[in-house]
């Protein structure tokens, strides 16, 4: 379970997170929606300890990661898989090597075991024939699928997605969303998706949380969100320029 308590973070004079609270239950897939530049990716980087908060707690399975470092933090990180915005694949490695990388570096698995796992991972994301390609030789959508396969290869308990469909066309976006749903069912991970893909994300997530002004202003099931009375939520999901939300 992930529990974020009163998280605060600022960069210089700009406050990005302002007392954020959020709870993600085991095996739940929660989407955090909100404006671009509203601090969603900053929130995700707090969860893997890349950014340290000014105040507040982040509890991963009961361990407050804001107070730990070094090997203890690495042990928590080993429970995570992360799909970064543009995939963050290693340019100098092939697709196969990218997916195999966490297994080669973090486990004592035999070569044949790694090969079996990677081939299964490639099949899961529909890229069985692409193992020999380099990231520069594949499309943006394929990169996200490879990133998903790499994030899932160690079968992590928690998977974080940082805007996994940004910059992709609607059909490819839809296929990535389907893939997230499929792999979530298969591997049963606890998931947090940072997204502003409305309404597609409602079909993927079990729960939606809206981030505005550095805090979560509403949490609920997708259906509750669609019929929310909150004027901020209504404006955001309708994409209207009229309403209480200030443009960033």
């Amino acid at each position: 379970m992930i529990e974020i308590v009163n998280l605060k973070k600022g960069f210089g004079k700009q406050r990005v997170l302002n007392g954020l609270n959020l709870k993600v239950l085991n095996k739940e897939l929660v989407a955090v929606i909100g404006q671009s530049g509203g601090g969603k990716s900053v929130l995700l980087k707090h969860l893997i300890g890349i950014i340290r908060p000014d105040e507040g707690k982040i509890l991963i399975e009961g361990v407050d990661i804001t107070g730990v470092g070094g090997k203890e933090l690495d042990r928590v990180r080993e429970r995570f898989g992360v799909v970064f915005q543009e995939g963050a694949l290693f340019d100098s490695l092939t697709v196969y090597e990218n997916i195999a990388f966490p297994l080669r570096e973090k486990t004592r698995m035999e070569k044949y075991e790694i090969e079996a796992r990677v081939i299964q991972g490639l099949e899961d994301v529909g890229l069985r024939e692409m193992g020999d390609k380099y990231p520069a030789e594949i499309s943006g959508g394929m990169k996200r699928r490879v990133a998903l396969a790499r994030a899932l290869i160690t079968e992590p308990a928690i998977v974080l997605f940082d805007e996994p469909t940004t910059g992709l066309d609607p059909i490819i976006s839809s296929s990535i969303h389907k893939l997230i749903t499929k792999t979530h069912k298969k591997y049963g991970f606890t998931g947090l998706i940072i997204s502003h893909e409305i309404p597609e994300i409602f079909e993927v997530a079990d729960k939606i949380a809206m981030l505005y002004n550095g805090t979560i202003i509403e949490t609920g099931h997708p259906e509750e969100f669609r019929h929310s009375d909150n004027p901020y939520v209504r404006q955001f999901i309708s994409g209207s320029l009229e309403g209480p939300i200030e443009l960033l």
Partner: peptide
């Protein structure tokens, strides 16, 4: 630098490497 701005360094950190 390119590894940094394309989050490849963050990806390494997130893998506890």
């Amino acid at each position: 630098g390119i590894m940094k701005i394309t989050e490849q360094i963050d990806a390494l950190t997130s893998m506890a490497l």
